[in-house]
Amino acid sequence: MARKVTTGRKIGTTIFAWFVGLVIFFPILWTFLTSFKTELQAISIPPVFVGFDWTLENYRTIQTQSNYFHFMANSIYLSLGSTALGLIFAIPAAWAMAFSPTRRTKDVLLWMLSTKMLPAVGVLIPIYLLFVRFGLLDSRLGLIVVLFLINLPILVWMLYTYFKEIPGEILEAARMDGASLSKEITQVLAPMAVPGIASTVLLNVILSWNEAFWTLNLTTSNAAPLTAFIASFSSPQGNFYAKLSAASMLAIAPILIVGWFSQKQLVRGLTFGAVK
C-alpha cells in the first residue's frame, strides 16, 4: 500500500514537473515556430502550430539586411573583455576579504550592494559626458569598461562566497610549512578556486551578453552588440513578427547553446551568496 502511494506521488511529480517545464518553455517554442513562418502565416487567425510551410526566408532577409555576425562578434568581444577585466580586479579583492576578513568586510560588502541601488537612467548622463570627453562613444573599449564596472560587485560577491568555502586550515598548514604568499596563492588556493571562478565567469558572460540599457545608449553601429541588433527590429509601424522572431532566435541562440552545455556550472554560478 505504502509503495503504491509513493509510486503515485512520483508519477504526479513527474507530470507536474514536465507540465511546468513546458509552460515555461512555451514562449520560446512559439517564437521559434514563428520565426519559420511567412509574415502572413504569423498573423493568421487562429494561430497555426506546425501545419505551415516552413521557410528560412526570415533568416535570409535578416542576414542580408543587417550583418548579424558583426553584432555577434561585438557581443563576444564585450562579454569576454569585460569578464576578463573584472577578474583582474575581483579575484584579489575577494581573496583579501575571504582570507583576511576585518571588521570592515561587512561594510565593504554592503557598500558594494549600494551600487545596485543606483538607477541606470540616473547616471547615464554623467557617464555619457565622460564618454564624450574621452572619445569612447560607440567604441568597444568604452563599453567593456562600463560592463566591467556594472558587474564588478556581483563578481566580487560571488568569488567571495566561493573563496569563503575554502577551509582556512589548509592555508594555515601551508603557512606553517613556510609557504610564501605567492606560493600560497598559486599552489594552494588557485586549484581549489577554479570551479568557483568558472561559474562566476559563465554568469558574468551571460549578464554582459544580455545588458541592453548601456549598450543601446552608448553605441550606434560600430560597437553595437546583439541587444542593439534586436532593438533595431522594432519598427513601430510594421508588424514584422516573423522577422522579429527570427532575430530573437538568432540573438539568444549562442546563449542557449552555451547554457545547455554548461548547465551545472551555471546553476552553481547562480547560487552565489545563497549557500554557506
Partner: peptide, 9 residues
C-alpha cells in the same frame, strides 16, 4: 528548460 527564460535578454 526552466533555466532558459532567465538567460534571455
Amino acid at each position: 528548460a526552466v533555466l532558459i527564460p532567465w538567460a534571455i535578454p
